[in-house]
């Protein structure tokens, strides 16, 4: 991961040290990895385009982007938590729980649209805060704490809804949140669905938080060496809880996206989505032990996964082989990353 110019240590005189390094050097640190992931993405795109004339068409690219939106947003949430050296297994069912809360607020309570959206995001943040409390204050290992939360939230969704979906037929404009196209209204030739827009906004926001804010810096620092951060006089528990809460809020956004896509909050969905999200994060080069990774990498990782699923289907690869290939690609991507790391 050493991409900054490195002179022989001893020969660099202390006074003449300040060597101008390009400003986003932190991003450049992961640049190689992203280059690798990005190259794989391009290879997949080119390969599928050559293999089928039906692949590289605006409508299909839009379909791929939209298919990335929910998993992508969840993966962005997972990235933050994984960077602290933790893991969040509850993101899938939390997404569903937030969708249910949106349904309760909009369909049952008849609140206006913005309040329903806020309720879902707020519920996500609170649930994330709960996970964060278990992990940071009660010192429950993240895997266990969020595994528990995953089940609790799944159960709560079923209890609240009575195991029945809540529909959004009474909320005009709800489906437009992911299916409409603001960009398409401005540029008719580019009908990018709003869900994709939301994904890019969320990713951009998280990239900003991670690279430019105190919260982001502590996120990396916690994953790099939590004890050193604590001994620096930083209230590590509070920051860690903040990261989980932020991830939870983003799951709330994912909940809005999926329910607006399906025009309903489906209480039984959500299990398994966390693994897809974590896979995207890992393919994007984020280390599961924390401290290393970027949102851009995650975004590329999520895109690789949807391009792969889409392309294999278009090529009419048998469904059972699709899963084999996807699994193999995950292993290959992480192995390539390992190789690159070892070479330094």
């Amino acid at each position: 991961m050493n991409t900054s110019p490195q002179n022989s240590k001893a020969s660099a005189p202390p006074a003449s040290v300040p060597a101008p390094v390009p400003a986003p050097a932190r991003l450049a640190g992961g640049a190689q990895q992203k280059l690798l992931a990005f190259a794989s993405l391009i290879v997949l795109l080119v390969g599928f385009s050559l293999a089928s004339p039906n692949f590289f068409q605006v409508s299909n690219i839009m379909a791929i982007l939209q298919a990335t939106s929910v998993n992508g947003v969840l993966a962005v949430a997972a990235t933050a938590v994984i960077l602290t050296g933790g893991i969040d297994l509850s993101i899938g069912t939390l997404m569903t729980f937030c969708a249910v809360i949106a349904g309760v607020a909009l369909t049952w309570a008849g609140l206006p649209l913005p309040l329903g959206v806020l309720a879902a995001i707020g519920a996500g943040a609170l649930a994330g805060l709960a996970s964060g409390t278990f992990v940071a204050r009660m010192k429950i290992p993240p895997f266990i704490a969020t595994l528990g939360m995953m089940l609790v939230l799944k159960g709560l969704s079923l209890i609240i809804t009575g195991a029945r979906p809540i529909y959004f037929n009474d909320t005009p404009g709800y489906t437009d949140i992911s299916q409409g196209s603001l960009i398409g209204m401005v540029l008719p030739g580019l009908p990018v669905p709003n869900g994709v827009l939301v994904l890019f906004l969320v990713a951009g926001g998280m990239a900003f938080v991670l690279s430019r804010t105190v919260l982001g810096r502590y996120t990396y620092a916690l994953g790099s060496n939590e004890e050193a951060v604590r001994l620096s006089g930083v209230n590590t528990n509070a920051w860690k809880m903040a990261v989980y809460a932020l991830a939870g809020a983003i799951c709330g956004i994912a909940g809005i996206l999926i329910s607006s896509r399906l025009n309903s909050a489906q209480p039984a969905l959500g299990l398994g989505y966390e693994l897809d999200a974590i896979a995207a994060v890992v393919i994007g080069g984020t280390s599961l032990s924390g401290g290393r990774g970027t949102v851009l990498g995650t975004l590329i990782g999520a895109l690789i996964m949807s391009v792969l699923t889409n392309g294999l289907r278009i090529l009419s690869v048998a469904p059972e082989w699709q899963t084999v290939v996807t699994g193999a690609i995950i292993i290959l991507a992480v192995y390539a990353d390992q190789l690159r790391r070892q070479r330094g």
């Binding site: 810096r217 790099s224 060496n225 620096s232």
Partner: peptide, 30 residues
């Protein structure tokens, strides 16, 4: 290595580690 430094982070970040908030504006931007 265990208690003093975030080894994977750079010199600038490590120096600022205990004083990050003094480099942040009101919204937490560094």
């Amino acid at each position: 290595k265990h208690f003093g430094l975030a080894l994977g982070m750079d010199v600038s970040d490590n120096i600022a580690l205990a004083s990050l908030s003094s480099y942040a504006n009101r919204v937490g931007q560094l």
